[in-house]
Amino acid sequence: MKSNGFLMVLAVVAVVVALANVSFTSMKMAEVNQKITGFASSSETGKVNITIATSVSINMSRSNITWGNGTIDVGQQNSTLYTSQENAAVVRGNWQTTNAKAFILDNVGNVNCSLILSGGKSAYAFIGGTNPQYQWNVTNKDDGSCAGGGALLSTWYDVNSSAKFCTQFGIVANSLYIDILLTVPNDANKTGEQTDTITASASTAG
């Protein structure tokens, strides 16, 4: 009998706790539902706000200018080699132009960016000799791709460690040519294979 009384109390407590549990769960789930996004039903609408992050990204889609093996024409002081967008020329020398076309640089991010070019070597370090030349020339591949910057488009400049060509490198018109010119003097002391790396650096526009 005493045991029955204890069980009775226990049963009543169990029912009360269960009732409290149901009430608490229902109330809390109602609160949680207000905070969860992505709810969909035939009678309600939902709204999701997203912010697309700024992403600066550039890609040198044509990244090799290879002149190969060549010599200055006999009796000449020097030879000049240059790319011209989709073409190239060799003056007073016999290098090949097959694999020499301008670098192509694309803005593949989702925001305008600024562009700085830097070369790894000077003309003297790259070629050597008397009055060597190592220059670059940036032009729009897509009209209006590049605006602003201290260095002008369509102008030959000596390759250097930092030249700002664009403050607004666009994402719609988004492609540039970077032409390269080399003048190899006949007393160039950097014979054999010579290489240099051009680095294009982009950061947020401005």
């Binding site: 700024t54 070629i127 290489t195 680095t199 294009a200 947020t204």
Partner: peptide, 14 residues
């Protein structure tokens, strides 16, 4: 991403 870089290579055999 707030900055990026890409490289190209110039080579010649003299």
């Amino acid at each position: 991403k707030l900055d990026d870089s890409s490289q190209g290579k110039v080579s010649i055999i003299i």
